[in-house]
Design a protein around this nucleic acid. Structure first.
Lengths: 195, 195, 195, 195
DNA sequence: CATGAATGAGGATTCATTCAT
DNA sequence: CATGAATGAATCCTCATTCAT
């Protein structure tokens, strides 16, 4: 339904600008060019609108990441690609990125009550790359895909947040390769403890 | 002032449980065992209470980290110690950790308007360790302390959040060493690209 | 807008009965038969409601006075007409009168911050009559229209207040002519100081 | 009791500055240099403090007026003296004047519930002068002392208010004589209606 | 007598949601 | 389907008053 999408688009824009607590149904309605009541023809209530909005956003992010990863085969390259694509998306679609980095955390609902299937899918994407690397013997056998995946998301997300909050936005190209280097090769000159 | 501390303690507890948006002055007053009006004898308004609370929390975290780092000299060990101490603190004082991982991000004020000196200090702690390592030749010369520091905070913070949100809480001991290994040695078996 | 007028009418009634300090938004809403929140659809806040209410009242009073003065030409008669019309209005619309005599003075805002254009217009009406009389040689050349005008308002207003506060309300017809006589002819039998 | 007077003096000063609605017990306590609770050792509550304060003020005004009138014998001169003394007092003790012109009217209590014996005395002072003049044949026999007295108070009070609210304060000497001339001789050149 | 910390009732205002048109 | 006026529960904050010290 076109009208529903208009509302969602408007909601994304407003949320990205105003944050969770300061976004009123009225604001979204105005931005979408509809009456307040119209929102309730398409969404049961504010929470449902938020959930649908988040799912829309995550679907988009997952689509972008999957498409980018399609042509890459090597685990290391996949990881680089993943990090690069996520941060590139932040630059290209800051509103989308803002929803994930900022808005998502501002709602207690998303953190606790809502079963976040799509975020789990996002994590799985990362975990699969890591597991693949371990299985292929490219990554250390001790690498824990669950923990590492989560840590990587945290790192990327925090860098995204920092970028979104900063006044003058330098390119995230460099940032993504710095993180990739750290993650793949480690900080140490030589292996800390030669296994 | 003892009463002020009682209120802050109560506020930490309530915020950790209910989150930012759902915490009412009334809740804090009840938890502290005082009347609503009493809150305003010690804090100008809700926002100031929140700022003071956050500063209290960050001071505590900074204190814990600095104390732990005191006796460590080597950069690698410092980094391990940092990660371990932060995650250990999460286990020991989940309410404190919750303020940082959850509540902090729920307030637009903290993300945008509030000049977050203490968080900058936290980051500086990390950055100094990294810079030290680079200067000592222990870490790669290409390591960017700013980006890397922020990424590390993001990683640790996300793992803390995941732990706080999980039903059954496994030890974070293992988690901290997994992250430390990744960060120091990288995921790859051999250096990805021999420089 | 009809609803706005209903609210203003209700507000006048409540203010006249309860006075400035004891009038709550809730009271006005109840008197108008609307919900509390509805008030805020038509007025930004309580202060704005009060200002709009006062302007409504003053417009009405000015209208009544101007209409009554229309057909009078002689300065003395104009003055008599002015005094009579004002006090007649007090009898006919005590609520309106109460706003001017009582409520207006109860708000520091009206006395100090608010630029009271309409009250200035009221005073000008009086001053113009006095100036006209001086110019026509009907009134003493020494008459100061500014001071005298203000004094006359004070006299009328105080008599209105006394009437409003009194239990048994005698006619103000007599009162108005007593004042007019004093003002026009003076209290003295013969001129005090034959100029 | 000295302490009580200190509080009253402080209260007069604060009320004159801040007006009725904005004067808090706290403000008075601070101005008097005592603790909030101390106020309640000398006054049952805020209303009683206000009543006592008003009585203090009126006693002072009555004293001043009576003293000034002591040596005057002729009704016309008495009236001139009354007006002059009242307005002179406004210039000399604006805080006192402010209580009468502004603060008194801001409290519904004083206007309605409180039996204002001292204000009645003030009015009687005026009425007696007028009655005396009528009895002595100096004033018209038609002069109504009740109405005229009230009107005179209104005139003087309004002029006092205007002066108190004005930025640059011109002398009230002139004002008092303008009013006296009007009241005694009337505005008209010749008697309006030759009796 | 004096204090001032504590109280808690009370009031202005906001905003998600409804429903008559 | 769409509207937007109306609702009223919910919450922050103030301040007169009390009372233990």
């Amino acid at each position: 339904m076109a009208r529903q999408d208009e509302i969602l688009r408007a909601a994304i824009s407003v949320l990205a600008k105003k944050g969770f607590q300061h976004t009123k149904i009225r604001d979204i309605a105005k931005a979408a060019g509809v009456a307040d009541g119209t929102i309730y023809l398409y969404f049961k209530n504010k929470d449902e609108l938020l959930v649908r909005l988040f799912e829309e956003v995550m679907q988009r992010v997952l689509g972008i990441l999957r498409k980018a990863l399609e042509k890459v085969t090597e685990p290391e390259e996949k990881l680089r690609c993943f990090l690069h694509t996520h941060l590139h998306m932040v630059e290209e679609e800051p509103e989308i990125a803002s929803i994930i980095s900022v808005v998502l955390r501002q709602s207690t609902t998303f953190l606790t009550e809502y079963e976040n299937t799509l975020f789990v899918e996002y994590l799985r994407l990362l975990q699969d790359i890591l597991q693949e690397g371990v299985d292929a013997g490219v990554f250390h056998s001790g690498v824990d895909p669950i923990i590492t995946g989560r840590a990587l998301f945290g790192a990327v997300d925090e860098l995204a947040l920092a970028w979104l909050m900063s006044r003058q936005k330098s390119s995230l190209e460099h940032t993504s390769s710095v993180v990739a280097d750290m993650v793949l090769n480690g900080l140490c000159q030589s292996l800390e403890r030669p296994a």
